[in-house]
């Protein structure tokens, strides 16, 4: 009974978080971005010869990816920090609402915004790609799904930093995690690091173990160059994302539960 009530309240918070963000005109920007994406994809495809559809797909997915990562980091940084700084959380936490319910509701609301983004921009990209004669592949959906999960993961990272530091710093830290999360696994994997500098190498290795391996989520090149990807890899990446996200959610709950809201 209590759990049902908790879930219900999480949905209420998610719903109003969504309404609040929606009314702040962010979705209007997404629609504009969608049209910009169409124009850019069209222009880019016009400059290519023979592979128009692939270029359009590459541009479309790339723009979508940047858009949701940007929204995730910049809106995510303010998601909880703004609640605490402007004290709107007082209006909610003075009700019979547990802190973790509030946090989960906010995360669910923001994730819905990201999902709508992926759906809208993804649909636009796929339609344009098919219109230009591209062949459908399941990998396109996987690419969208993994981009979404990467954005949610980054959302958890930025929320974590925003709970322990200032909003601006949390954006900077998350961008660092984003860059390192993409660069470190590739760099270490290619064995080009100066192994002579053992401390530096071990630090990089340690970093790659702690930080999320975001390069796993980037399957756009495989899609564009029509390379096959084993289902084990795709499902494994999805499982990795879910586990990492759940770990960060738990960490954020612990931090938020202990936070002094003054």
């Amino acid at each position: 009974m209590n759990l049902i009530l908790e879930i219900k309240k999480t949905f209420v918070i998610a719903r109003y978080t969504f309404i609040e963000i929606y009314k702040s005109k962010i979705l209007l920007n997404i629609i504009l971005l969608g049209f910009a994406l169409l124009v850019v994809s069209y222009v880019a495809s016009e400059f290519s010869y023979g592979v128009q559809s692939r270029i359009a797909l590459d541009f479309g997915l790339g723009t979508l990816y940047l858009a949701i990562v940007g929204i995730s980091i910049f809106f995510g940084a303010a998601l909880m920090a703004k609640e605490i700084e402007s004290r709107t959380c007082y209006m909610i936490l003075s009700r019979p609402v547990k802190r973790h319910t509030f946090l989960l509701g906010k995360i669910a609301g923001m994730s819905t915004i990201l999902a709508i983004n992926v759906f809208f921009l993804g649909t636009l990209t796929i339609c344009f790609y098919l219109y230009l004669g591209g062949a459908y592949s399941n990998l396109i959906l996987w690419c969208l799904l993994l981009s979404f999960f990467e954005a949610v993961l980054l959302l958890m990272v930025v929320i974590f930093f925003s709970l322990i530091s200032k909003t601006t710093m949390s954006v900077i830290y998350t961008i660092c995690v984003f860059i390192l999360g993409h660069v470190l696994p590739n760099t270490l994997g290619k064995d080009i690091i100066l192994k002579g500098d053992l401390i530096f190498y071990k630090l990089m290795k340690l970093g790659s173990l702690i930080l999320p391996n975001l390069s796993k989520f980037n399957i756009r090149d495989h899609l564009i160059y029509k390379q096959e990807l084993a289902p084990q890899f795709l499902w494994g990446t999805l499982a990795y994302a879910v586990v990492y996200i759940l770990f960060l959610v738990a960490l954020n709950i612990i931090v938020f539960n202990r936070k002094q809201l003054d």
Binding site: I13, R87, Y90, M91
Partner: peptide, 23 residues
Amino acid sequence: PERPFFYPYLTGREMIFYTGKLS
């Protein structure tokens, strides 16, 4: 609260429903 803190983009009705539902 000392200064009532609300979500600026919600309407008054939405805010009251929000807090009411949570109670």
